[in-house]
Design a protein around this nucleic acid. Sequence first.
DNA 1: AATCTAATTTGATATGTATCGAATTAGATT
DNA 2: AATCTAATTCGATACATATCAAATTAGATT
Lengths: 184, 184
Amino acid sequence: MSDEVIDFFKAFSDANRLKIVGLLARQPYSVEELAALLDLKPSTVSHHLAKLAQIGLVSAKTESYYNVYQLDEKVLEAKSRSLFSQENLKASVSEIDLDAYDSKVIHDYTRKDGSLKTIPAQRKKLEAVLRYLVKVFDVNKRYSEKKVNEILSQYHEDTASLRRELVGYGLMKREGGGGEYWRE
Amino acid sequence: MSDEVIDFFKAFSDANRLKIVGLLARQPYSVEELAALLDLKPSTVSHHLAKLAQIGLVSAKTESYYNVYQLDEKVLEAKSRSLFSQENLKASVSEIDLDAYDSKVIHDYTRKDGSLKTIPAQRKKLEAVLRYLVKVFDVNKRYSEKKVNEILSQYHEDTASLRRELVGYGLMKREGGGGEYWRE
DNA sequence: AATCTAATTTGATATGTATCGAATTAGATT
DNA sequence: AATCTAATTCGATACATATCAAATTAGATT
């Protein structure tokens, strides 16, 4: 899943691994050669190559004494095109509960019976509470102003404010003349 | 230079930062909202956003109480195309001394006067030594076998082996009949 | 002006990781 | 078979960083 993507980004998040990829893009090298070129110990290079091999970016073929590593350019090309794609971005969001913020606000502002402790003064929290309140109205059904107040009074005494904000934020519509309200 | 590239990869090397980018690709969010969606503390989210802002990927606009962050999709697109480009790979290699391996081998196998302690048995080291030796011959100049031996004898007594390997690895050419050698 | 709120900064902690040296392994050369 | 070599693995260390709590800051609301 997402771990693969992260491993790939991590593989490129180190200066020496970037250099290794750059070198192998020109020609294959043994561990010992890379160590000399990068001024690192072979054990360190081996460690880096293991990470690059884990994501399938490089592979080794033994050649007498040497382990000669080569870059798989196909993998590099494929990944470079897909890493920032819409699918990857969507995938990273897919596991998130997009209602978590509303849930937290509702939890903070309501009592056990669901009624409001106070009406939030902050815009984003008020919005969350209004999105919560509007659900008690059936879609497309017409309500008189009196009926709206009656329903809202279960949540807070200041029904006028709640009603006004619901309309103000576009969550409910109101017909100018007859004083009818509905949720679209 | 390369540090910018690394910072960019590092920015994507964390699951929560990936999620933030994914969320902001859909719509802007405040720090508090992101904290609730990711189940993190606001201070942690602020820390992540600072890193994303440092590479120019997100920016904030204050909106009454809130700092609402938004994704700069232009930057995302531009970077996603350039990060794995040939130029970046070349840039990572540009600061590397490509002769470092040969230099190390020469250092290990020669005395202060430049002569060889031994002839390396390992292929890659032998190649490095031969690349070092061949430089004493002028390009395109013709040498008799006797002259070649005379020159090589300054480096090692086994001139026949050196001469044979120089030809075997293609570093010097030999004309079949007259026994003449040259470097192309 | 006083108060409140979200965001940031700072300090502390725990985890992750790049590096090296030493020991081990795999494999080729003699 | 014995020896040599490059690579890998293991253990230790130092540095980086993700996270949170507490303190501070910036800014709006009352």
